[in-house]
C-alpha cells in the first residue's frame, strides 16, 4: 500500500486534535503551526516502522511532545520541564490573565457536576473552562476528556509516571469545576446566557 496515502489519511483524521495539542504546548497559533509541520515530517519518516497495534494518535502526540521539548531546548538552551511544573512563564501578562485561573479559585469548593447540570452550562462553556486551566493541568484534562487517551497513553505522551497523570487529572478536574463555577458567576453577574 502507498505509505503516503495511509499517512495522509491518518493525519487528516487527527488534524484537529494534533493542532489543538500543538496550541496547548506552544500557546501561540503561529508556533503551533510550525510545530505541527515539524511533527508531520518526523512522523512520516518513522511511519513505516510504526507498530499498527498501538494508538496512532498517542504516537503522534508523543512525537509532538518530544519535538516541542527539542525546540525549546534549542531556543533557550535549557530544559523545558521545569516550566511545565511552574505554569506559564513564557506568557505575557495579558495571555496569562486570559488562560489561568485567579488565585482565589484555589480556595473555592469545586462545583458538583449536579450543580453544573442544574445550571445549564453549554458545551462551549465547558470548553472555555478547560481553556482557562493552567497549562500543566489543561494538557492532561484535554488529553483525557477531549482526546480520550488512556492513563497509560497520557503518561507516554507527557513522559511522566502514571501516578503523576492520575494526580494531575484529579487536580485538573477539580480546577475545571472551579473554573466552571467562575464562568457561571460571570454569567450571572453580566446576565449573559451563552455560557
Amino acid at each position: 500500500m502507498d505509505l503516503r496515502a495511509e499517512f495522509q489519511a491518518v493525519v487528516m483524521a487527527n488534524l484537529d486534535s494534533l493542532f489543538g495539542y500543538a496550541r496547548v504546548l506552544t500557546r501561540r497559533t503561529s508556533d503551533a503551526e510550525d510545530l505541527l509541520q515539524d511533527v508531520l515530517l518526523r512522523a512520516y519518516r518513522a511511519f513505516g516502522s510504526f507498530d499498527r497495534k498501538l494508538s496512532v494518535k498517542a504516537w503522534l502526540f508523543k512525537i509532538m511532545k518530544n519535538a516541542y521539548i527539542d525546540r525549546e531546548r534549542r531556543r533557550r538552551a535549557r530544559p523545558v520541564e521545569g516550566e511545565w511544573e511552574n505554569g506559564d512563564e513564557r506568557a505575557t501578562d495579558e495571555e496569562r490573565g486570559a488562560r489561568t485561573l485567579p488565585g482565589e479559585m484555589y480556595l473555592y469548593v469545586p462545583l458538583s457536576p449536579e450543580d453544573i447540570l442544574l445550571r445549564h452550562l453549554t458545551i462551549e462553556g465547558v470548553r472555555e473552562g478547560i481553556r482557562r486551566l493552567p497549562a500543566v493541568w489543561r494538557q492532561v484534562v484535554e488529553l483525557r476528556e477531549i482526546e480520550g487517551l488512556s492513563y497509560q497513553e497520557i503518561a507516554e505522551v507527557i513522559g511522566k509516571p502514571i501516578g503523576t497523570v492520575m494526580s494531575r487529572l484529579s487536580r485538573g478536574r477539580d480546577l475545571l469545576r472551579a473554573s466552571l463555577q467562575d464562568l457561571l458567576s460571570e454569567r450571572e453577574k453580566t446576565g449573559a446566557h451563552d455560557l
Partner: peptide, 13 residues
C-alpha cells in the same frame, strides 16, 4: 498541511 502532505515523497509499505 494538505500541501505539505501532498509534497511528501511517495513510499511503499
Amino acid at each position: 498541511v494538505i500541501r505539505l502532505l501532498d509534497a511528501l515523497p511517495s513510499r511503499q509499505s
